[in-house]
Amino acid sequence: MTDRDVGAAGGRDGLTFNVQRFAVHDGPGVRTLIFLKGCPLRCLWCANPESQRPTPEPGFLAGRCLGLDRCRLCLDQCPHGALAAGPGRPVLDRAVCGRCRDFACRRACPAGALIVWGRRMTPEEAVAEAEKDAVFQRRSKGGLTLSGGEPLAQPEFALSVLELAKRRRLTTALETSGWADFEILKAAAPLLDFVLYDVKLVDRRRHEATTGRGNEVILGNLRRLAELRPGPRLKVRAPVVPGVNDCPQAAADLGRLLARLPSAAFEALPYHALGRSKYEALDRPYPMGQAKLAEGALEAFRAATESARAAGPSR
């Protein structure tokens, strides 16, 4: 990574926080996921808290730190003095940090404990990343997937990547929260083979309470996206989250909604606490605490959704 790579998104270039190769569960075939940074929602259960803010930010993965007794390489590296020796480990003062463009601390850390989430990328670089696995994609009809964060929150970059990917004959997929200006989604649709569309809750107020936004835009966009002809293949995905939507009512609501989208596939995903260590790395509290999905809750949600869907939208 060069210094140029770290910085805010702007225009055609994008801000990403991860690239994952050999993703085989998010869309058809072997895919390369480009994760875009910045999201309008603040879901309580978000597994990628580093994806939320639209600017680069440092993280400290304490588990990787060698400890100050073995390594002090980072200590005098911050020009702003945001890094100081703490008990056994360095401490990052976020009030002081964040103004810096080159993140010398990250480059100083040999263990990968101090990291910076946020890498500037051109559309060409993003597509080149995906094309590294071209041999595998060709065989599996895989390709490039934009994920996030909310990819459509960086519309110019997202559309440029998709356009270029299409020109390079990659299959394209989008993982979206649906919270975007429909015009952007509409512009993206002809460039997409596959859309994985998150619907967390049909109940507007609960949606707002648990994600920070209402769901009118999301549900409206979903309906209009499904009506596009021709349109991308559509899969609605619902995370099943304890205390949020792991109840028969939420499943029934979702089922009725799906009944109006006959061509959409559906998948329920279980809540997991994988993001916890990243909250710690960002010095943020983990909103879900010790919540756990009850045994059988996923299957019950899936069954209730499917049965409501089968009963039709009128009920």
Binding site: F22, A23, V24, H25, D26, R237, P239, E267, L269, P270, Y271, H272, A273, L274, R276, S277
Partner: peptide
């Protein structure tokens, strides 16, 4: 080592001890 968890795959070494 890649492990498959719920909707996606992750590197096992990067997961919490609990998980």
């Amino acid at each position: 080592l890649i492990v498959r968890i719920a909707g996606y795959s992750a590197y096992f070494a990067d997961l919490s001890a609990d998980l």
